[in-house]
């Protein structure tokens, strides 16, 4: 009886013992930068212009932005900002607002501005501040 118990003990010890091999075995390492920003691919069907614009934005997301990574210094990013600006105003005014944002984005002297810094290290710069309506400006 004692022998059987000892055998079972030894066998179960080797069968169910924890192994450290998983911890020390080779791992697949990924050097890809995680994109925290999840793009909204929804299509705005409020009017034909917005539908075309959101399709163009989705193409940009798919072919450029998703591959290039989250590089825009601002939040919302320039593409989202353009859509917001057009929604807030019109296609003409929205394009002008976007042209200004684009120039600010390529600013050689980053850090010399007064934007609020978000925890994600991005400058908060919403489109509603640029509609030339002082009532809409928020800090």
């Amino acid at each position: 009886m004692i022998k059987v118990t000892v055998i079972i003990l030894v066998i179960s010890g080797s069968l169910f013992a924890q192994t450290d091999w998983n911890k020390w075995s080779g791992q697949q390492v990924s050097y890809e930068i995680t994109i925290h920003q999840i793009h909204d691919y929804s299509i705005d069907n409020s009017n034909i212009g917005m539908t075309l614009l959101s399709i163009t934005r989705n193409l940009y997301y798919f072919f450029i932005s998703d591959l290039d990574g989250d590089n825009c210094a601002f939040n919302p990013s320039c593409s989202s900002f353009f859509i917001q600006a057009v929604k807030e105003t019109s296609i003409f005014k929205g394009t002008l607002i976007f042209a200004d944002r684009f120039t600010r984005d390529i600013n050689f002297f980053k850090g010399m501005n007064n934007y609020p810094l978000l925890p994600s290290n991005k400058y908060f710069d919403p489109a509603y501040n640029y509609t030339l309506n002082s009532q809409k400006i928020k800090f």
């Binding site: 042209a99 120039t103 600010r104 007064n114 002082s134 800090f139």
Partner: peptide, 17 residues
Amino acid sequence: GGNIYGSAASAQIYSAR
């Protein structure tokens, strides 16, 4: 065009601040 518009917006934001 963007710069002219942006200057107007910037002046307004400056005053609002």
